[in-house]
């Protein structure tokens, strides 16, 4: 399924990128409060959504793996952890650039940003554990993933409760509910969801191939072919 779905999803994502880019420049209204820099919003927010989704997928699949100990859930957990780390890096970088453009500051240690950084560090931790922790790496990483997933509601609540963070549509109440801004943003979310699926499927394939290599090596060692 994956082999055929990946090119289709990648193509749909590419179309979505082009359409979203065109709409955000030519269709979405100009935000008078956040000015031109508000255009970062249309890809920054979808990346944040994908960070949450990828982390949730990682947490749930880890939980299932801890219960069933099935390889496919382990593969999905690792793949989604890596993709979540990628989206997390994108959110932190684009958010930082936006903050510099809008408020002339790259970073501030406020709750929302600090929590987002902690979530990202947890995801990087999962990837590192999987790589270096040895035989029990899968279970350690799964536990860490479940722990990391618990951070999502806190970050989401803090972003919505924050006085400083620009909300959907930004620019104050007048633009916050502007349907054109919302339309372009949700199109961005759909596009990056397809992109998220593409990357996870690609990574799952890769993880499955790594597993196959390990199994073949074990066979080779047992047969005395490899030393």
């Amino acid at each position: 399924m994956s082999n055929k779905a990946i090119p289709v999803l990648a193509t749909l994502s590419a179309i979505g990128f082009v359409v979203t880019l065109w709409l955000m420049y030519s269709f979405a209204p100009f935000d008078r409060a956040l000015l031109f820099n508000q255009k970062i919003f249309y890809w920054h927010v979808p990346h944040a959504f994908m960070l949450f989704i990828a982390t949730a997928v990682c947490g749930v699949s880890s939980l299932i793996f801890l219960k069933k100990r099935t390889a496919k859930w382990d593969d999905l957990a690792l793949a989604s952890a890596e993709v979540a780390a990628l989206f997390g890096a994108a959110v932190l970088i684009t958010g930082s650039i936006w903050a510099k453009a809008a408020w002339d500051i790259w970073w501030t240690w406020e709750k929302r940003l600090t929590m987002s950084l902690l979530l990202w560090l947890t995801l990087v931790g999962i990837v590192l554990v999987r790589r270096f922790a040895g035989a029990s790496a899968d279970r350690l990483a799964a536990g860490l993933a479940v722990f990391g997933t618990l951070g999502i509601p806190f970050i989401y609540t803090m972003v919505n409760a924050s006085d400083h963070h620009p909300q959907a549509g930004a620019g104050g109440a007048a633009l916050a509910s502007h349907p054109d801004i919302k339309l372009v943003m949700w199109l961005g979310v759909l596009t990056f969801f397809l992109w998220f699926l593409t990357l996870v499927m690609m990574r799952v394939q890769s993880v499955a191939a790594e597993r196959e290599v390990r199994e073949l090596r074990e066979k080779g060692l047992d047969a005395g072919v490899l030393s």
Partner: peptide, 21 residues
């Protein structure tokens, strides 16, 4: 004319994605 930061943000996204792929 203040497109610098927008372009910088998009470039960062594409670099990350391209590097991962």
């Amino acid at each position: 004319k203040d497109q610098k930061h927008v372009i910088l943000a998009y470039a960062a996204l594409w670099l990350l994605a391209a590097g991962f792929v």
